[in-house]
């Protein structure tokens, strides 16, 4: 009876633990830099980091890097979404094609695709193209696999019923296949988005000319620790909010189908 309330209470408690944990970490961090004399080059003072973060945001210095990273992410995600859903849908129409292609994609997916980064840098150079290529490759697989799973596992009874009631191809697609497959596809898209974000930032960290990952590395190489920590906090906040937005969209898409 009180289950929803209990759930709310549990969630509240776990949020409380998380906030408490962060407070303790910040406190230890502060004490480590002020009292216990940890080297500033290893761990900058949190107040200092806060000042730098405020400075970064006030000056708008992050705008260019953020724009580049988000553009790379958007292009990569759009390419992998379009190609992954179209190809996945085409494959899912035939059980035979599923048997041919599904293990192939699953097999490639189990290779750490980050290994292709040196190749992409060689093909596409240090600019955004190599990041887009890596992000696309990495996010393509969860999208295509979930599309195959989604459209491939639609209950046959539903399809037969719709057909016998005289549904056209379009009606079958729009009112039976899509609603049935959508939850699986949406979770694949969310996963694709998350890994695309990680791989774009990751490839910027490893080899690039611009972008948020590049900025962090650049500051690390200049030993500008406080500003580097500020950027790390900034990027984590951006990533967390993007992932939250995508999760909310996913939940909404599930409800509206």
């Amino acid at each position: 009876m009180s289950s929803p309330r209990r759930k709310f209470k549990d969630r509240f408690a776990s949020r409380l633990v998380q906030v408490g944990f962060l407070v303790v970490v910040l406190l230890l961090w502060y004490l480590a830099t002020t009292r216990w004399g940890v080297n500033k080059l290893l761990l900058p003072n949190p107040l200092n980091v806060w000042d730098q973060l405020a400075d970064v945001i006030r000056k708008g210095e992050y705008l260019n890097d953020l724009r580049i990273t988000l553009t790379e992410l958007a292009v990569a995600f759009v390419i992998s979404t379009v190609s992954g859903t179209l190809l996945g849908y085409a494959i899912s129409r035939s059980p035979y094609l599923i048997k041919v292609f599904e293990p192939l994609f699953a097999g490639i997916y189990s290779i750490p695709i980050i290994l292709f980064l040196p190749l992409y840098v060689l093909f596409f150079g240090l600019g955004p193209a190599s990041k887009i290529a890596l992000g696309t490759t990495i996010s393509f697989f969860p999208v295509v696999l979930s599309t195959i799973a989604g459209f491939g596992n639609v209950d046959k009874v539903l399809v037969t019923a719709a057909r016998s009631m005289g549904a056209s191809d379009y009606q079958l697609f729009r009112f039976v296949l899509v609603p049935a497959a959508l939850p699986v596809i949406l979770s694949g898209l969310r996963m694709g988005f998350t890994v695309a974000l990680l791989s774009v930032i990751g490839s910027e960290t490893i080899a690039s000319l611009a972008g948020l990952g590049h900025r962090i590395v650049n500051l690390a190489e200049n030993m500008d620790m406080a500003r580097m920590f500020a950027y790390i906090v900034f990027v984590i906040a951006i990533a967390a909010s993007l992932n939250t937005v995508v999760s909310v969209l996913e939940a909404r898409g599930r409800r509206q189908r």
Binding site: L197, I201, T205, I216, V217, I232, V235, A240
Partner: peptide, 11 residues
């Protein structure tokens, strides 16, 4: 687990 760890690689 939710932190994108790649950002802290330089650390």
């Amino acid at each position: 687990y939710g932190i994108p760890q790649i950002t802290i690689l330089p650390i």
